[in-house]
């Protein structure tokens, strides 16, 4: 029996530990996706916390267990977007440069650099497709966009990425 589905069923019946186990499974996804929106670590942490509480409140209404991760990421993106708009005037570039100077691993540096190169309107799509390996259809559902739009953004984004990297 699929472990995730079992955990979701238990979580829907109010099993806190089952829910927490599900979140832990998705922890890295939440962190990577939130970083695509919010460069400041505090904001990322707050957005993830909001998402966890929101998801626990409403997990009883998740229609299909196998869609748990898609559903969770959709909630996260909503929270991130809201938080991003609230903080739009903040100097995220400055936050990023401070963070880059800290002692973070090579993977983190590469990850953040890639995010900064990616075009704004494609960043989250790239993250979901290449980083989290969602399908086009799942991404369309998460973002509420047309599948063809997702494909064209991926195509265009790769072209823009290629040009940006050639210029470095």
């Amino acid at each position: 029996m699929n472990t995730v589905n079992t955990l979701v069923r238990r979580a829907r019946r109010g099993d806190a530990e089952a829910f927490i186990a599900l979140i832990e499974e998705c922890k890295m996804t939440l962190q990577r996706v939130a970083l695509g929106y919010l460069r400041n670590e505090e904001d990322v942490a707050d957005a993830i916390q909001d998402t966890i509480l929101d998801a626990y409140e409403h997990i009883g209404n998740l229609k299909k267990e196998e869609y748990f991760k898609t559903w969770l990421v959709r909630i996260l993106i909503n929270r991130c977007t809201k938080r991003y708009r609230m903080n739009q005037h903040k100097a995220y570039l400055e936050d990023y440069s401070e963070e880059a100077q800290r002692d973070v691993g090579k993977a983190d540096v590469e990850f953040r650099e890639m995010l900064s190169i990616l075009p704004d309107d494609s960043r989250v799509i790239f993250q979901l497709y290449y980083g989290e390996q969602f399908t086009i259809r799942e991404i369309a559902e998460i973002l509420g966009m047309n599948e063809n739009t997702i494909k064209s953004r991926l195509h265009r984004g790769k072209e823009q990425l290629r040009v940006a990297l050639e210029g470095r």
Binding site: M28, Q31, R32, L35, V104, G105, A107, D108, E110, F111, M114, F126, Q127, Y130, G131, E132, Q133
Partner: peptide, 8 residues
């Protein structure tokens, strides 16, 4: 590889 990396 880059976008799916395990971050610290």
């Amino acid at each position: 590889r880059v976008l799916g990396a395990e971050l610290r």
